[in-house]
Amino acid sequence: MEKIKIHVLHTGRVCVDPALPFKSKSKNPIAYTGIGRNPKNRLWLPVSVYLIEHPNGLILYDTGWHREVSPEGKYSRIAQIKHMYLRHYLLNQAKLPKGKAIDEQLEEMGIKPSDLDYVILSHMHTDHASGLKLVKVAKKIMVSKTEMEDTVRHPVRYARRMWDGVQIDTFSFKNTGLGPVGKSYDLFGDGSIELINIPGHTNGIAAMKINNNGKYVLLFADGGYAEKSWKEMIAPGTALDRDGAMASIAWIKEMSRKEACLESLANHDPDVIPHEIIL
């Protein structure tokens, strides 16, 4: 197959308690909320999205923050609460510099949102789905059926206003034997883009494995928050299913260590900077 180019982009940052990305050993069962914790210890982490130039079209994986969280590039508490609701704002505050919203970065690259053939969401949490309305004119927007069902089963974990009025299609994971629970979805039917169920953080979260010329890149979203997640086997503090999350991290670790793996990337790894990957 022709070469595939992956653009690793940062759409601002997110501020969280350390127990949210890296489950705390604290006796505080809600340490990830930051309640009763020192705010000086909070972390600012990047919010990554990925633009994939594939022979079959342009694919955007996740959407990052919407400009609404930072009007005119300025931090705005009121704007963020309005955009994501108070409960989410208390968990994760946003910063989005001017020019870093996904539509702004696409424009800088000479790409219109309508040029996108696919927008694929790893899952529907705020910092992944916030920017959906910026690219709602993409040809096709997709998320797993399981994840969309989770937005109904566990509504407190989501901010549904972020996709009100947006046409989103769902795909169903198949029993393929791939991934920690053996379920995946082959986007093009040729094995080049595999969406692999890595449950734990949410039930329907989908990692993206991009395959070409005997090599692959693994984008594991919030299956873990950084490389240290799989190196040290640390589950996200907000995991819906901790056992499932640990099984998914074990699979991520296995896949990340294979010789064929060019890069393995989490969405919020502070050690990852914007760059391009040629596969």
Rank of each mutant, 00 (worst) to 15 (best):
V156G: 01
S26C: 08
K23Q: 11
V152N: 06
L219A: 02
I249K: 08
G34M: 03
I278T: 11
R77I: 14
F188L: 00
D164C: 11
R153M: 14
K231I: 05
I196W: 00
D186L: 01
G179A: 08
S144C: 05
R37N: 14
I81Y: 06
H201A: 09
P21Q: 05
K183D: 01
K139P: 04
I81D: 00
Y158W: 03
G36C: 03
G64H: 12
M142D: 01
T151S: 02
N211C: 14
P39R: 04
K3M: 11
G200S: 01
S26H: 09
P71K: 02
Q93H: 05
R77C: 10
S192G: 02
W251C: 12
G110C: 14
Q93I: 10
I273E: 07
W163F: 08
A206R: 05
M84S: 09
L91Y: 12
Y185D: 08
E2Q: 12
M142Q: 08
A245L: 12
M233S: 02
P274I: 02
K40C: 12
I252V: 07
I196P: 00
P71A: 04
F173S: 05
K140E: 10
K27A: 06
T202Y: 15
H66N: 08
K174N: 13
D150K: 14
L187K: 05
L218K: 14
Y216G: 00
V8W: 06
K231C: 01
Y158V: 03
K40M: 14
W44C: 03
A250N: 11
Y158G: 00
L265H: 11
I111M: 02
L218H: 00
Y89T: 05
E276N: 07
A19G: 08
G73L: 07
P29S: 11
F22P: 04
E2H: 12
N38P: 06
T11V: 13
D190H: 06
K5L: 05
A221Y: 07
K112T: 13
S48N: 08
T176Y: 12
H83Q: 13
D62R: 01
E53C: 00
K25T: 11
S192P: 07
M233T: 03
I35T: 05
G165F: 09
N38I: 01
T238D: 06
S192Q: 02
Y118P: 13
K5W: 01
V47P: 00
S70V: 03
W230K: 06
F220R: 01
I252F: 02
G244T: 12
L96Y: 06
V137L: 03
G131R: 10
R67P: 03
P97I: 03
C15N: 15
S76R: 00
L134T: 12
L96T: 07
D17M: 04
K231N: 12
G73P: 08
K136A: 14
N175W: 00
D103E: 13
G237L: 01
T33D: 13
A266H: 08
E2N: 13
E108A: 14
V135R: 08
Y85P: 08
T170C: 12
K228T: 12
K3A: 13
G214W: 09
M208C: 15
E276H: 04
L43Q: 09
H123V: 02
L279Y: 05
Q167Y: 15
E232K: 11
C261K: 00
L96P: 04
V272F: 09
S144M: 01
K100H: 05
I205F: 07
H201I: 10
I168A: 14
L91M: 11
K25S: 15
D241L: 14
G204A: 05
